[in-house]
Design a protein around this nucleic acid. Structure first.
Lengths: 204, 204
DNA sequence: TATCGAACCGGACCGTAGTCCGATTATGTG
DNA sequence: CACATAATCGGACTACGGTCCGGTTCGATA
């Protein structure tokens, strides 16, 4: 899995193991990730147990957990590539998502892009955001830093850390699922709501 | 358990069982709630299993689950009384938490009161907010309605439903624990942040 | 008080996330 | 190529949330 990225986008550790990895271990990790992705797609995340994944990958349960640590971490790893692509678009992509646009425009575009991302991977993402890793995963840290910097740029006097965290919980996968399914708010309304929210929070 | 409240605060179902309850069942529910509250306080929520509670209450596991359905529902029930008291203060208490103050002031006071409430019961509340019940529990519905109405009052043109949900996730227990422990933001700052957030979202 | 049906009880049982450790295998070195 | 060692493997094991169902108890009725 080419998760590697020379010149890491931001000064943050990425999932990929830093140390050298034995050949069989690397091969097993590959097989596990492929099996997980396939089973998640075939029968849904909630109907796929860790044992299922281990069996489909042809490895033992111990191997699975030693490599990924937990179910949520595995889900995160499955999304790693796409998460990196999104991150790339944030940092080196076209405005308004990428650099070049005013902070408020970028914040709005970030939310819209994130909502699209969530919509595409709601199940896996929801599984990845379970437990304490939710707030400490690399993708979350990247988002947090991104939003914090944009807020600070738009309004140096505000409490950017607090406001950033607050805005980010409104982009959580479980929250999206709840709003979409239980409250039946269509995507369009979520995007408009986000725009309204950011417009109010960020002076402009 | 005197969860009863004549003239229910808002048109919403409360936890208390509507139908008559057999005497032994009522006694067992009492014992379960007391045991849960005691064990939660003594050794912490995360170190207390459902079997522990059942054993301490002198009932079987089946009884425990039939009465309360799930671990999170039990945690919710443990907090039921205090939750009702808070709800009471919202609806019939003194301003600015209760009626009489401008919507924006009431929203700010609501957040501050909620933060105090969370700080006092963070562990139990975090356990109660796990799973899909998080967004469909009576206390959440009450909060949602309350915030929605205040938002609509302050600004009839806004998307009050969306904004209400968004503001409420910023008052979640796990979010509070994360901000307080991992990010080390003191309560004072959380309250100031909430004030800032509401001041920006609600025109004044 | 005797009877009866409904509600309740409890503990055996299931599935799953996560742990552990003896057996195995890959890789660097002589 | 043979060896030593350190990392890896895998499946048995634990703990826990949640389910099920045969036996029991309550309480309304006569």
């Amino acid at each position: 899995m080419p998760t590697e990225q020379q010149t890491p986008a931001i000064e943050l550790p990425v999932l990929a193991p830093a140390a050298v990895e034995r050949a069989d271990a690397a091969r097993n990790r590959q097989r596990i990730l492929c099996a997980a992705q396939r089973l998640f797609a075939e029968r849904g995340v909630s109907c796929t147990s860790m044992e299922d994944i281990a069996a489909a990958a042809g490895v033992g349960k111990g191997t699975l957990f030693r490599r990924f640590g937990s179910r949520s971490a595995l889900a995160l790893a499955v999304l790693s590539e796409r998460e990196s692509a999104f991150q790339e678009a944030l940092i080196r992509g076209e405005p308004p998502l990428g650099p070049g646009a005013p902070a408020r425009e970028r914040l709005i575009a970030f939310g819209h892009g994130r909502l699209d991302f969530i919509a595409d991977h709601a199940e896996v993402l929801a599984a990845a955001e379970i437990g304490p890793e939710r707030f400490s995963s690399p993708p979350y840290e990247v988002s947090r830093l991104h939003v914090t910097l944009l807020l600070r740029e738009a309004d140096p006097g505000c409490d950017a850390e607090y406001l950033a965290e607050t805005l980010l919980v409104a982009l959580g996968a479980d929250f999206y699922v709840y709003l979409g399914l239980a409250r039946e708010l269509p995507m369009e309304r979520l995007k408009e709501g986000w725009t309204e929210l950011v417009s109010r929070v960020v002076p402009g």
